[in-house]
Amino acid sequence: MNNRLHILLVLPGVLLVVALLVAPLYFVFLDTIPDLEHPFSLYEAFLEKGFHQKIIIRTIRVALITTMICVILAYPCAFFIARYARRFKAVLIVIAVFPLLLSPVVRSFAWMAILGKNGFVNDLLLFFRIIQEPVQMLYTEGAVIVGLTYLFLPLMILPLVGVIENIEEDLLDSAKSLGAKDIIVFFQIILPLSASGLLVGCILVFTGSLTAYTTPRLLGGDQAMTLSTLIYQNAMTLFEWDAASVIAIIMITLTILVMKIIGSLATRMNPDV
């Protein structure tokens, strides 16, 4: 088939994305620079407030911690699923995929019930007399991190399983037979060879946590706001559309930055990625 026909077939889709995504985003960007003589005046006004700075820093910190926890939890898990699980492999993958397809509202609500004043964790701690009265766990940064880790852990496990499966058994065996300790095998062989999966997982988890809305709203509330709850508040409650536009551009910039940084880190770990 000729090129013109191919172009004709993708055209409706391209137009749709341009009309509903590219153009509106471009206009949002234009909204943030109303005055060309002082192009950054709106950004300066937004960033001046300590409250806003705090939220930006908190959003990045929460995403960073969530990603690190996910890496630590996912590696052993993915290694086990890919190498040793055998007939349990399918079951373990199904259990990891299942929460991924479930509504984030349900998954965050579960943690509201667990971390609440009369929740499971407080009940347990009271029962064992570790605490005397219920502790406030909901509407804290910690609650948001737990909720986000729960939300995104499968997104770290699954790509890692995919790449660890492809590492040749002989490679690990020969390293071990030459006397390499487990920890050396991990850092010298498994880590570099699974870098591509780690990269995908980190990008998904980091950008996901940076931009998640439901979880910070339900588990963080007004006390532990992130950029996504802040943009909603500015746009829909305060009707501060200039501020909302600034936040939108900051969020997109952060997302792209994170993808670039993680991408270059992965190339350094394994130049073949």
Binding site: L20, L21, A23, P24, L25, F27, V28, D31, T207, L210, T211, Y213, S228, I231, Y232, A235, W241, A244, S245, A248, M251, I252, T255, M259
Partner: peptide
């Protein structure tokens, strides 16, 4: 790739 809240806001406004 574009954050959901940003997408929603841009769609609503523009």
């Amino acid at each position: 790739i574009v954050p959901g809240v940003v997408l929603g806001f841009a769609l609503l406004k523009h």
